[in-house]
Simulated scan of single mutants.
Amino acid sequence: MSQRFRHAALVGKYHAQGIRDVLEDIAGFLIRQGLEVTLERDTALNTGMTDYDALSASDLGKVCDIAIVVGGDGTMLGIARQLARFGTPLVGINQGRLGFITDVTVGQFAEALAPMIAGDYEEERRTMLEGGVWRDGEVIFEGFAVNDVVVSRGATAGMVELKIDIGDEFVANLRADGLIVGSATGSTAYALSAGGPILHPGIAGWVMVPIAPHDLSNRPIVLPDSREISIEVVDGRDASVNFDMQSLASLLHGDRVVVRRSADQVRFLHPLGWSYYATLRRKLRWNAGVA
């Protein structure tokens, strides 16, 4: 059942030009709608907005019942990963071109937010990835990702060789520039640029996409998200792994990157009438030939 919200976290792409004025406008609007407003700490520090309380992301998740994120999809990914464990719903307001997950324009924020605050909205939940890097039987790195986990070669090195297991079954040895394991959300990001398929968020699965593979028979594949994926570095120098914005460089031979479905999900709220297909149509220009 939809709810009326009471306490909003406000998060901004604080290094963007003109962001303070936009955040001030949105904060003022939320207060006039009867909400309490708290800024994310880095947003407050970097914009100089001192008229509002400021908290870390983890503390925002404990006290706020909605998060308004102003920026692009990258800004949304950063905070979504931190708030997912609290179940905090997120609304994305985009300053520039509409994103895949930040779909309210700055110029229409009041029109869009007013009914959403009152409980009239579309909600969707997106699956996250989690995992880590194992070395000599110990976990040396852990991370979460809304978009993808990417194992890639070093900047100046040649290809990497990767051994891929899914569950208890050996699947492939791959020589390539790298490998992407992407969620449905991430299927329209790096994985799409690398030739992967678009995965509807209603499907419980991952996309696994080789990056510039040596053998053209190494193709993208859609996998169920119920199995753990293990990616072992067999050969190649200076390989790295990236869980969204969290990176570990200089993987060693024998290191295993393990990826699985997270127990947490991200909650995105959209204005009534929002459509996933309309988002794809707009972003990918699928209606370019329509008069």
Rank of each mutant, 00 (worst) to 15 (best):
R126A: 04
T127H: 06
T127C: 04
T127A: 06
T127E: 02
M128E: 12
M128F: 13
M128W: 12
L129N: 05
E130N: 15
G131I: 06
G132C: 15
G132T: 15
G132F: 15
V133A: 04
W134D: 14
R135P: 15
R135Q: 14
R135T: 13
D136G: 08
D136W: 07
D136V: 12
D136S: 14
G137E: 03
G137A: 03
V139N: 13
V139G: 10
V139Y: 09
V139K: 15
I140P: 07
I140H: 05
F141M: 13
F141T: 07
F141I: 07
F141V: 07
E142K: 14
F144P: 06
F144S: 12
A145C: 11
A145V: 10
V146L: 15
V146T: 14
V146H: 10
N147I: 10
D148Y: 00
D148R: 02
V150A: 01
V150W: 00
V151H: 05
V151T: 10
V151C: 06
S152I: 01
S152F: 10
R153C: 04
R153Q: 03
G154P: 13
A155V: 07
A155P: 08
T156Y: 14
T156A: 13
A157N: 12
G158K: 05
M159Q: 01
V160E: 06
V160T: 09
E161H: 07
E161S: 11
E161L: 01
L162F: 00
K163N: 10
K163F: 06
K163R: 14
K163A: 12
I164W: 08
I164Q: 10
D165P: 03
D165K: 10
G167Q: 03
G167W: 02
D168P: 07
E169G: 03
F170Q: 01
F170I: 00
V171H: 00
N173L: 08
N173R: 10
